[in-house]
Design a protein around this nucleic acid. Structure first.
Lengths: 290, 290
DNA sequence: AGGGAGGTGAAAAAAATCTTTCAGAATTTT
DNA sequence: AAAATTCTGAAAGATTTTTTTCACCTCCCT
């Protein structure tokens, strides 16, 4: 809202006394299904209220707008603000920092990214992808690029514990063609390709596809060209106030997938985790958690 | 909704694959402030999405409407229907998934983690840490453990572009004692140690500390034993409905730090600046403007 | 009842919005 | 590497929407 913090609905009700008969009739019609009716064409609104078009134009001016379009624009603003509101109630995430502080701006962006991304994900596809990754008969190849190989490795490190036959390939390394020799039909590729999209990753995906492997892609909202080849694609939002893109939403999806796959593999995982734990204990890599 | 029970939002998402690049860009713009932006004039929508007016006209036709006005009319119908129905969903992140679905439970937990973590961070400490990492006279060592070395590498890959003299050490590798020979007073260590805390990381931190290096630690809410030695500690919440811990908050902090450090280092080395500019272009301009 | 002030809507004028066309650009296929 | 296909946006044309004008109507007051 530009000028005041009043909604248009409030404004109308406040001015109700100063309005003429036809205008009051119109006002009630607007409030009847607010704000939808006010967002349509002026003539439709007039007709719906059984008044003439000029009456609408005049009332809108009485309310303080220059014309009907301006009135509509404010209605849309109001709607926009309302849609964002339930989530964006936090004006500052890091208390004690000005709201313009990088931490707050960045967190705002990330939360919005998460909200948008999750809103567009098809839960069935997510479940299907998890089942594919959990399938014990398939080998799972995890592929990342220059930056994203860190995400790939993160997934790999967990999957390695959860199930056997997991391989991590880095598309930027020159050793990857080697791995493709072993790929058999039904194997699963989990591919990370966020902009800038990498040629090597695309080539690798194509070859895997040709071999009959199933492809799961993690990409951004603009979608890597690999998208054409995949069985399932997850596109996350990555925009943050930075010269770089954010991979937070990707990590969120990865971790959710890890958790879901682990539940699917539970029986196997238990044994494997225990075995691994023993190994680590013996090598004294970890301190015991007290 | 007149014909089917699908919302326009659903329809758009369903058709997303059949759309062209510009159209997809537009689609995302519509979903961004849904439904407000779709209720404005066609030209404004086109401008907001950085596409031309005809693209909008074509896409709505692809979606099955006779023209833009018809599309808007349906949007308004949808809005009207939603207003009548007092309690719409909106408590679920992934619409269409039951609120008990892993995606929703996980996202809830992550958002809560972010909220809690950011609430406890001291912005001044954050700024100080960023300045330390940006300091050109210090060498920066980035250290991670078995899982967390992926986070460390993520930070490293970005820092590497932003400033010289950055080193990535993996505490689980047996080569790390080598690196410590070169450490001089005033060098900076960024250490990742989330549970389960690793003995090697602690040892490495102790030796670095003894050499007069400054320590920045990323850990969890229970805090790694390294905490005693550090100048600055960031503790993130990591609890999620999973057998594993979440590193999303850590990544959020890392990315914020990257962005802040980059701002501080702006215009350091000429080559570096040019390289950055180049990358910036490639990152930001995903399509050409004419 | 007659005069006047303000209210109202039909119709025309003005403005904007939407659609179509077409040529150039980008992409894919051969 | 060249050809064909598809995509895209500028500009013009078509349509709709909004505003203005103006005559008529109603209601109130003397």
């Amino acid at each position: 809202m530009s000028s005041s913090d009043l909604t248009i609905s409030d404004r109308i009700q406040r001015k109700l006394d100063e309005l003429t008969r036809a205008e009051r009739q119109l006002a009630h019609s607007i409030l009847e299904n607010y704000p939808a009716s006010g967002l349509g064409p002026l003539t439709a609104l007039a007709k719906g209220a059984n008044v003439s078009a000029p009456t609408v134009a005049r009332m809108v001016q009485k309310l303080g707008y220059k014309g009907y379009p301006e009135f509509q624009a404010e209605l849309r603003e109001e709607l926009k603000a309302k849609a964002k509101n339930p989530i964006a109630k936090h004006d500052a995430w890091a208390e004690g920092a000005p709201s313009g502080h990088m931490l707050n701006r960045f967190t705002d962006a990330v939360i919005e990214n998460i909200r948008q991304t999750l809103g567009q994900i098809d839960p069935d596809q997510f479940d299907t992808a998890c089942q594919m990754v959990a399938e014990p008969r398939s080998r799972v190849y995890i592929v990342g690029g220059r930056i994203t190989h860190t995400l790939a490795e993160y997934l790999f490190l967990h999957m390695q514990v959860i199930r056997p036959e997991v391989v991590h390939i880095q598309s930027t390394s020159n050793g990857w063609p080697h791995y493709l020799l072993d790929v058999k039909e039904g194997d699963v590729f989990v591919i990370f390709d966020l902009r800038r999209y990498e040629n090597n990753t695309l080539k690798l995906a194509e070859m895997a596809h040709k071999k009959g492997a199933k492809l799961i892609l993690f990409t951004d909202q603009w979608r890597s060209p690999v998208d054409r080849l995949t069985d399932i694609t997850f596109s996350g939002r990555i925009v943050v106030p930075s010269a770089w893109d954010s991979n937070v939403t990707s990590l969120l999806l990865i971790e959710s997938m890890i958790s879901t796959v682990q539940n699917l593999c539970w029986g196997d995982t238990k044994d494997r985790a225990e075995a691994l734990e023993d190994m680590f204990d013996q090598t004294m890599l970890f301190r015991k958690f007290t």
